[in-house]
Design a protein around this nucleic acid. Structure first.
Lengths: 154, 154
DNA sequence: CTTGACTCCGTACCTTGGTACGGAGTTTAG
DNA sequence: CTAAACTCCGTACCAAGGTACGGAGTCAAG
C-alpha cells in the first residue's frame, strides 16, 4: 500500500534555488510503485541515483524511465533486459534492440506452447472426470499415477 | 548431474532379512532426479521418510509417488497442490481432485491469455521495427517509452 | 521548537523448486 | 581390513522481483 502524501503540492520552497524535482516518495507515488521499488531499481542499475544533497531529487526524466520499465515488464521483459533497453534508448542500434526483443519473443512463444499443452491435457482430464461415473476411479488421479495423457503431440 | 551408481545390482544382502527396498541414491537414480530432490520432497511432505535403521530403505511405492510428482509438475501443478493430490490418491473425493485441477486450469488459462497478449504486441513491434527505415526512431523503444501498443484488446 | 512525516541506508525476508556443501557415520568391493 | 562410495542431516545458496524493518537524519507546518 504505497500511500502518497499530497502535502507540498505547490509552493516553490523558500531557498533561492527552489530545490527542483521530486523527492523519492513523490516519484514513487507518481509512478504508482513503492518507494522500496525505486530503490530496488537503483540497486539494479535501472535508475540513476541523484547526487546526494541530504534529500535526493528526481526529475521527470526519471519518472519516464519508471514508466518505461513498467511498459517493458508488461511485455514480459526481465529487469536485466530492461536495463539494456534503457541504455539503448539513447544511443543504441536497432539491431541491438531487436536482438533483445527477439529473444524475449522466442521465450514467450516457448512458454506459450508449454502452457497450451498443459491446458489441453488438463482440460481433457477435467472433462473426463466430470463425464465419468462417480464410482469409477478418478481419471485425473489415474493419469497422474500412470503417466497417461502425457504432454506430447495431440 | 545425478550420476547413478549401478553397484549392488543383485545379491540379496547377507543379513537374514535381506534389507528390502532401495537406498535413497537408487531411488533417485530410478526416478531420474537428484538425491537432494528426494530429500526436498520429504521436507515438503510429498514423500514419506522411512523409519531410520541407519540407512533408510524405500519401496517401489515411493518411486511411484515420485513419478506421480513429475507427471503432475508437467501439467503445471505446484508442489503444495501435488501434496494434496497425493493425499487424495487414496481416499479423496473426485470433487476435491476437481477443485484442485480446476483452479490450476484457470491459472493456466490466465497465464496463457497474458502470454498471448505479450506475443501479439511483441510480434507486431518486431515486425514494425524490421519494416521501418533504418533512420526512423526504433518503434520498439518508442512504444516502451510512450506506452503505445499497451496490452489491451486487439 | 516540537512533532510528525518523510528520507537515507543497509540488511533481512518472501516465494518456488530445487542445488550445493560439509562433517560424521555406514556399507561394501576388493 | 581398508578405502571408496554412499547416506544422513542441517544449513546455506541460486534466480526474480520485490517487500519489510529499523535507526538516524532532514524538513516543514503549527
Amino acid at each position: 500500500m504505497h500511500a502518497a502524501s499530497k502535502r507540498r503540492s505547490h509552493r516553490p520552497a523558500r531557498t533561492g534555488v527552489a530545490a527542483a524535482g521530486m523527492t523519492i516518495g513523490r516519484l514513487a507515488a507518481a509512478a504508482r510503485v513503492g518507494v522500496e521499488t525505486i530503490r530496488y531499481y537503483q540497486r539494479r542499475q535501472l535508475l540513476p541515483v541523484p547526487a546526494a544533497a541530504g534529500v535526493r531529487r528526481y526529475s521527470s526524466g526519471v519518472l519516464h524511465r519508471v514508466q518505461f520499465i513498467k511498459h517493458a515488464q508488461a511485455l514480459g521483459f526481465a529487469l536485466v533486459e530492461i536495463r539494456e533497453l534503457l541504455r539503448l534508448e539513447d544511443g543504441g542500434t536497432r539491431a541491438e534492440v531487436r536482438q533483445i526483443a527477439g529473444a524475449r519473443l522466442k521465450n514467450v512463444r516457448d512458454k506459450l506452447a508449454a502452457l497450451q499443452r498443459m491446458e489441453r491435457v488438463l482440460g481433457h482430464l477435467l472433462a473426463d472426470c466430470e463425464a465419468s461415473g462417480p464410482q469409477a476411479p478418478c481419471p485425473i488421479i489415474g493419469a497422474l499415477a500412470s503417466g497417461a495423457g502425457a504432454l506430447g503431440a495431440p
